[in-house]
């Protein structure tokens, strides 16, 4: 095994263009180092990209664009501001402080765990990912990039170079809720992100719902979103959204939780998430928190 420490983006792309199929990209390493130790991966080349400053940082002019090396800790501290609270909340649940200060959002995306915490939150913000190779660049919606359990459409010569989010408008609230058995250090049994936008009268005019750990990869539920739009979060519409989610998901039994439990928590989570979105959008009842 060989380690290549890229000192520029071009350098990294150069390595990928020649030996991409033998490369494992290494950023914070919180997933990759474990996979190496367990023998789950044995790449010929470890391409260390974590010192590339051009992959760091956040730009906000209209859209919000963040570098893949932005850490969970940066996000958890609110780097993206009040409009992306679900992203901050999701990043704050990735392991402990030690994982958050080195783990990167790009790594979370490319590792493509079914339980990846930041993915549902990124999905409800219409995240797009930009991939570059030495030959080309392309930008695709995140939901078309992560396509299965630990599977993405990243080509062997490509590197994730940016994540772009559409900044939400006024009267929008978002939230990430995670189901686990402890206060922290949990791999999500279910992760749920929601973003709701409201008319001044409290009618939902836009809804995004995305979940983790309920199928091979984090996913949005279009039918559930549709069920919330046009109403005021009445119990019937929440029930309809829950029914839609339960139709869309394909949860498994695993060591962390049963499929039955994953289904069982969904309706209550949706209700709680909707209430929090409403409250954060400034349209909820004053006692909605919690």
């Amino acid at each position: 095994m060989e380690l290549r420490a890229a000192d520029s983006l071009d350098d990294a792309l150069e390595v990928l263009s020649h030996r991409g199929d033998q490369c494992q990209v290494l950023a914070g390493g919180t997933d990759v180092m474990i996979q190496l130790a367990r023998g789950e991966i044995a790449p010929a080349v470890l391409l260390h990209v974590e010192k590339l400053d051009e992959l760091r940082g956040v730009e906000a002019n209209g859209d919000t664009r963040l570098g893949p090396l932005v850490t969970h800790r940066d996000l958890a501290k609110g780097l993206l501001g009040e409009r992306f609270r679900s992203i901050a909340e999701s990043a704050a649940t990735v392991g402990g402080l030690q994982t958050q200060v080195v783990g990167t959002v790009g790594g979370n995306i490319c590792n493509a765990s079914p339980a990846a915490d930041t993915l549902p939150a990124l999905l409800v913000h219409d995240a797009q990912v930009t991939l570059r190779s030495s030959a080309a660049s392309r930008t695709v919606p995140l939901q078309d990039f992560v396509v299965g359990r630990r599977a993405t459409t990243r080509g062997p010569d490509e590197l994730l170079t940016a994540i772009t989010l559409v900044t939400p408008g006024e009267r929008t609230g978002d939230v990430y809720l995670k189901v686990g058995r402890r206060s922290a250090m949990e791999v999500a049994i279910v992760g749920l992100a929601m973003r709701l936008a409201f008319d001044p009268d409290g009618t939902v005019n836009d809804a995004r719902i995305a979940l983790a750990s309920v199928g091979p990869c984090p996913m949005r539920s279009a039918d559930a979103e549709a069920a919330l739009v046009g109403g005021g979060l009445e119990p019937d519409s929440i029930d309809a959204a829950a029914d839609a989610v339960l139709r869309d998901i394909t949860p498994m039994d695993d060591v962390r939780g049963s499929a039955a439990y994953r289904r069982r928590v969904i309706p209550g989570l949706l209700r709680k998430a909707a209430d929090l979105c409403s409250q954060r959008a400034g349209t909820g009842s004053p006692d909605g928190e919690g």
Partner: peptide, 28 residues
Amino acid sequence: LHESLRIGEDGRYRERTLESYRLPLAGD
């Protein structure tokens, strides 16, 4: 509350690391 340590029908433990064998944290 937290520390499930289940044995499968094959006699092997299901929880095998400190990720799935959950020890109480300061927040718990």
